[in-house]
């Protein structure tokens, strides 16, 4: 009986703790990502993530961002050149490589994929970013 209580308690705490830690981790990354965004991205993509029509593609409710996780990380990591189609609109504006660390890229990705109506259930980690090749 005692063991059972311990096991039940253990299961409970582990069940409770893990997601909590995760949400906290995600939230911390999003918070750091906001700082990166305010420094490097806001000038073109704007505080509301809507960008500028035909010049700077939107991040808010952007099909390109939400459906092309690796390509989006690659664009932040190595720069974006050439045409992309975002929400049915063609964009061809160069984005220079931003010179961010893998951690900063993970943070800003977590911020933009969880803001302005975007929702991302799988956290982006620096390890994931480090594996993205040019």
């Amino acid at each position: 009986m005692r063991y059972l209580i311990i096991i039940i308690l253990f299961v409970f705490t582990s069940c409770n703790l893990n997601p909590k830690q995760n949400t906290k981790e995600v939230q911390n990354s999003i918070d750091r990502g906001f700082v990166v965004y305010s420094d490097f991205c806001v000038t073109c993509h704007l505080p509301n993530g809507k960008g500028v029509a035909k010049v700077f593609p939107p991040l808010a409710e952007s099909d390109y961002l939400m459906n092309n996780r690796s390509l989006s990380i690659r664009a932040i990591k190595y720069g974006q050149n050439g045409e992309i189609i975002v929400n049915g609109e063609t964009y061809n504006t160069a984005m220079a490589p931003l010179g961010l660390s893998d951690k900063e890229i993970a943070d800003v990705m977590n911020y933009i994929t969880n803001s302005w109506g975007n929702k991302n259930d799988t956290m982006i980690t620096p390890e994931e970013v480090s594996k993205i090749k040019k």
Binding site: D39, F40, P97, L98, G99, L100
Partner: peptide
């Protein structure tokens, strides 16, 4: 050259 943000 330090290429970061608007720098380059």
């Amino acid at each position: 050259i330090y290429v970061r943000g608007q720098g380059g």
